[in-house]
Design a protein around this nucleic acid. Structure first.
Length: 589
RNA sequence: GGUCGCGUAGCUCAGUUGGAUAGAGCAUCUGCCUUCUAAGCAGACGGUCAGAGGUUCGAAUCCUCUCGCGAUCACCA
């Protein structure tokens, strides 16, 4: 039971004793910094039930609380706000309990398990900045959900089939000269991506040639021989043609290897991969089932639909007239498959907001089909990452490549670090590792601190900041704390219960106190931004403490011990909360 | 056109069951390194919370309308 609950009960008791009124709700909020106090009772809502002035009411409740609760030191009333000052003992008691708890902030693991899907790339395009946002969000939300007490499985579905794959394969056959990642030194995803571009170029040439021959644009686009060949290749793939399947496997493997490299650099991982080549047939039997239950209906041409007009949506196709699956069919089938595979009771889909409508429909269909877990589906929808020039378009070469960006961030971190020159005694390897941690920290924090729903405008000209509300700022504070701990060569492990807190110390403990509820809130809202902002506040508070009080230099032993303990606890929380964002913290920088 | 999302300082963003004088960072300007890491601290400057109504003791937050930006409305994925 936290203070707020205790106080709420006592406030009700007070009002009942003094005014003979039973309160329904008691509303608290943290006291604003401009006023003295730790927690504030808002008395306005009570005035409906109690006929008196807000000030008199506040005074009366305040007097009662001070008389009946030892942890309350004093109070003051401003307008309808009763500001309560808690005794140091209360804070010391809390701090003593959590300072060495390695799981502080995290809930114990419960029954609920959930699958988080993210990344889900195409195999013909290298990962870009948009994927980075997706990956960081998906990974971080997974970690946050784990910390909130859920069992989490991370997954990606790899789009490894369809005409687009055949385009890259065909171009490689035609123009590839048996190039491989080994022979060229290119990452596999980049190599295959290049052939996708080559296909597009050849295709466009053929189209303009045909148009010059007098064909209309539509005719030319449909009749270009290279496209026909790609379609033929898809037919062969679907028929299981040995040669085509072999090439498909080889080239896909190149891409997977390339992706793995990028994932490893980014620090994200998956518990399970699903491949569309395995799942694209799923869902058809469910459509049959839905037809029987009259959830779906068949049109004259044989196609199957669901009518969602009652829900304010449209009609949506779930099976083509030729009996083949559409995207929706596959997603229905895959969802059901995942529940079978992992016995999960919910799912999170990390997919851009251009698919808001699709997921609305998907979830609705699954609910109508009667799956109880359909209530626990969440579309983690996020805004696009735009460049100053507008949308990223791979065909126009205006994409920010994921590998390049990571490289650039690392290089910037290196420049700054070398300029500051604080790394004497570090080996080259240690330095490189540190630059990577800082560069990635800057990038990840920059992206995760923003509310997922909002669009991000990314300007490659103005590189990501390393000062102010940034990843490196927070990492720096952590490194500072570690420096203090290295120098604190004495035993500071004993809890302290007799101590007079100064304002900075008290603020810090208050901020630490907020960590567990922040984790829960971030989990409920699927929002890493809440964790990022919390950590920033904590770090700002610590830096102010650090610059305004002496830690190791004080005469008073208790004071010195307490301040070291406090610094350590803050460092632990920084490390813990940054882990939820997928960001590492350095011992020095 | 229908639906959904967004609009807060010059720029990037916080502001979560409606609470006190709307907060940070960047940029600009002042101070602070012979004491624990100055990627820091202390301060100044900067606001019609897109606009108009409404609900409320109280609105950036809830409701309605208007404007602006974006997404979406395929037998594509």
């Amino acid at each position: 039971m936290n203070v707020q609950d205790v106080l709420a009960a006592q406030v009700k008791e007070a009002v009942s004793n003094i005014f003979n009124v039973t309160l329904e709700t008691v509303e608290f909020q943290p006291t604003r910094k401009d006023f003295e106090g730790d927690i504030t009772l808002v008395t306005f809502p009570m005035l409906r039930q109690i006929k008196t002035s807000p000030v008199k009411l506040g005074e009366a409740i305040g007097d009662y609380l001070v008389a009946h609760n030892q942890e309350i030191e004093k109070f003051n009333v401003v307008q309808g706000f009763l500001n309560i000052v808690l005794a140091d003992a209360y804070y010391l008691n809390f701090f003593g309990k959590v300072k060495d708890d390695p799981d502080f902030g995290k809930a114990s693991v419960g029954e609920e398990s959930i699958m988080v899907e993210y990344s889900s790339p195409n195999t013909n395009k290298p990962l870009h900045l948009g994927h980075i946002r997706n990956n960081l969000l998906g990974y971080s939300v997974s970690e946050i959900l784990k910390a909130s007490g859920k069992k989490v499985y991370k997954t990606q579905i790899i789009n490894d089939r369809g005409i687009h794959i055949c385009k890259s394969m065909l171009a490689w056959q035609r123009f590839g000269n048996d190039e491989t990642p080994e022979s060229t030194g290119l990452k596999g995803d980049k190599l295959v991506g290049n052939y996708y571009v080559k296909f597009d170029k050849a295709y466009k040439e053929e189209v303009s040639y045909l148009q010059a021959q007098g064909k209309t644009e539509d005719e030319a686009k449909a009749e270009a021989p290279i496209l026909k060949d790609a379609q033929e290749m898809l037919r062969k793939w679907e028929a299981g043609d040995a040669e085509v399947v072999e090439l498909w496997k080889t080239m896909n493997q190149w891409v997977y290897d390339g992706f793995e490299e990028t994932y490893a650099k980014l620090g994200v991982d998956f518990d399970k991969n699903y491949y569309e080549s395995n799942t694209y047939l799923l869902g058809k039997n469910v459509v049959a089932e839905g037809l029987e239950k009259d959830i779906f209906y068949r049109k004259d041409d044989g196609s199957v639909w669901i009518d969602l007009t009652d829900e304010g949506l449209d009609e949506k196709i779930v099976l083509r007239s030729d009996g083949t699956a559409v995207y929706m069919t596959q997603d229905i089938g895959t969802a059901i498959q995942r529940v079978k595979d992992y016995h999960i009771n919910g799912m999170v889909y990390t997919v851009g907001n251009e698919q808001d409508y699709h997921f609305k429909v998907l979830f609705l269909i699954l609910k109508k089909l009667g799956y109880e877990w359909a209530e626990n589906l969440y579309h983690l929808s996020y805004g696009m990452v735009d460049l100053p020039s507008g949308k990223m378009k791979s065909r126009e070469g205006t994409v920010v490549d994921a590998d390049d960006l990571i490289e650039e961030m690392t290089a910037t971190a290196k420049n700054i670090s070398e300029e500051l020159g604080k790394l004497d005694g570090y080996s080259e390897a240690e330095k490189e590792e540190l630059y990577r941690i800082i560069g990635l920290g800057a990038l990840k924090y920059y992206i995760l601190k923003v509310d997922p729903r909002k669009r991000i405008l990314f300007n490659p000209e103005e590189s990501v900041d390393f000062q102010g509300n940034t990843g490196p700022f927070i990492q720096y504070t952590y490194a500072r704390i570690q420096s203090i701990l290295r120098k604190a060569e004495f035993d500071y492990s004993n809890p302290i219960f007799e101590y007079s807190l100064n304002e900075k110390e008290k603020q810090l403990i208050k901020q630490l106190q907020l960590y567990p509820e922040t984790v829960q809130l971030a989990a409920e809202n699927h929002s890493p931004a809440l964790i990022a902002n919390y950590t920033y506040e904590l770090v700002k508070e610590f830096n102010s403490f650090y610059q305004n009080v002496t830690i190791l230099g004080t005469e008073d032993e208790t004071e010195k011990n307490f301040r070291v303990q406090l610094s350590k606890a803050v460092g632990d929380v920084i490390k813990s909360s940054f882990a939820l964002l997928g960001i590492q913290v350095p011992e020095r920088m």
